[in-house]
Computed example of a mutant assay.
Amino acid sequence: MNWNRTLLWGITLRQLALILSFYSVAALLYNLALCISERPWSQDSLWVDFWQGLPRIGLDYLCKLAFTLPVWYVLFVRLRHVPLVRRVGLHLLFLPLYIVGWQVVYYTISDGLGLGRLRGTGIVWDTYISTLFYLVQFGIFHAYSYYRDHQRHRIREAELRELAVQSELSALKAQLNPHFLYNVFNTISASVPPEQEHTRELLADLSDMFRYQVRASRTEWVPVQDELTFVRKYLDLETARFGDRLQVRLDVPDEVLNLAIPPMLLQPIVENSVKHGISPLIEGGEVRVSLHREANALLVEIADTGAGMRTSVGAGQGVGLANTRLRLEKMFGGELTVMANEPQGTRVAFRVPLRLMAGEVQKTDGQPATQFVVNP
Rank of each mutant, 00 (worst) to 15 (best):
L237N: 15
H81T: 07
I140H: 04
W51M: 05
S110Q: 12
L160W: 01
P343F: 09
E162W: 08
Q166P: 02
P70N: 06
G112V: 09
E286D: 10
Q15D: 14
L7A: 06
I261L: 10
L65R: 09
E227K: 01
S42N: 12
V361E: 15
V231A: 08
V124L: 14
L202M: 08
Y61G: 14
Q367L: 15
I278M: 04
V270K: 03
G116M: 08
G10D: 11
F76N: 06
D111P: 04
Y182D: 10
V124Y: 12
L113Q: 09
A164E: 00
E360F: 14
S207I: 05
Q52S: 01
R78M: 02
A303S: 11
N183V: 03
V287E: 07
V136W: 13
L266A: 09
A260K: 00
L59W: 08
L235C: 12
A26M: 10
F350I: 15
V274Y: 01
L113R: 10
K233S: 06
A340K: 13
L65F: 13
S217K: 00
T108I: 07
L265A: 00
G320S: 10
E159K: 15
C63F: 11
P40T: 12
F141H: 07
R200W: 04
E168L: 13
G333C: 03
G333F: 05
T239F: 08
Q267V: 15
Y134F: 14
G112R: 13
W72H: 05
L75T: 03
T305G: 02
W47Y: 13
L202W: 01
V248H: 02
T108V: 13
Y107S: 13
E335L: 07
L13K: 15
G316N: 07
L46E: 11
L206N: 06
F332T: 00
F22G: 09
S145I: 07
L169G: 09
P343A: 10
A171V: 03
D49P: 01
A33F: 09
A216E: 00
L16G: 11
L291K: 08
W72L: 05
R119M: 11
L203G: 07
G58Y: 02
A315Q: 09
V224G: 06
W41S: 12
L20T: 08
K173I: 06
G345L: 01
I302W: 00
S290I: 10
A295W: 07
E168R: 10
L172M: 11
F210V: 15
S217Y: 00
F133Y: 15
L356D: 14
A27R: 00
D244Y: 05
E271V: 02
Y30F: 12
R56S: 02
R156E: 15
V300G: 03
Q362N: 12
R200T: 05
E286W: 06
L28Y: 06
L321Q: 14
L181P: 01
T121H: 10
V270W: 04
H179Y: 04
L250A: 08
Q15F: 06
T108N: 11
E255L: 11
A143K: 05
V85G: 06
A216I: 00
L172V: 02
Q344N: 11
V319I: 15
L7V: 15
V270T: 14
M1G: 08
L135W: 06
A158Y: 12
Q267N: 15
L356H: 12
H142R: 14
T229M: 07
A171T: 02
W47L: 13
M264S: 11
P280Y: 07
I269G: 02
L75R: 00
E360I: 11
